[in-house]
């Protein structure tokens, strides 16, 4: 019988690969009986969904994060130098 600590590890691992049968069964049985580990599983799903959203839309989240004007200027200069060299 797996304890909670072990099951949290397996829940995470099951997000990355198909667990061997005995581990999968052990995890499922534990999850049926343990509401805290079930919550843990739900929380990992929440993290995964949120991370997916993060990867899909970088644009609308946090408009305060933007390229500083100094960095923008520096990048433009480096591009101009590149174009001069290669034209």
């Amino acid at each position: 019988m797996f304890n909670c600590k072990k099951v949290t590890y397996l829940v995470s691992e099951s997000l990355d690969r198909k667990l061997p049968l005995y581990q999968r069964m052990g995890m499922r049985i534990h999850l049926m009986m343990c509401k805290f580990c079930s919550r843990y599983k739900e929380q990992l799903f929440f993290l995964r969904k949120t991370a997916r959203l993060l990867s899909e839309s970088g644009e609308d989240s946090a408009p305060s994060i933007q390229l500083s004007s100094e960095a923008g200027k520096r990048i433009k200069e480096s591009m101009a130098r590149f174009l001069q060299k290669h034209q």
């Binding site: 993060l54 970088g58 644009e59 989240s61 946090a62 994060i65 933007q66 390229l67 500083s68 960095a71 923008g72 520096r74 990048i75 433009k76 591009m79 101009a80």
Partner: peptide, 26 residues
């Protein structure tokens, strides 16, 4: 020359939310 103005912020944000260090993202 227009790329920085058009896509700079978007790309910066994209990078920043993956590396979490402003100079690295720049």
């Amino acid at each position: 020359e227009k790329w920085v103005d058009l896509y700079g912020d978007y790309l910066y944000k994209y990078a920043f939310y993956r590396v979490y260090e402003a100079p690295v993202a720049e």
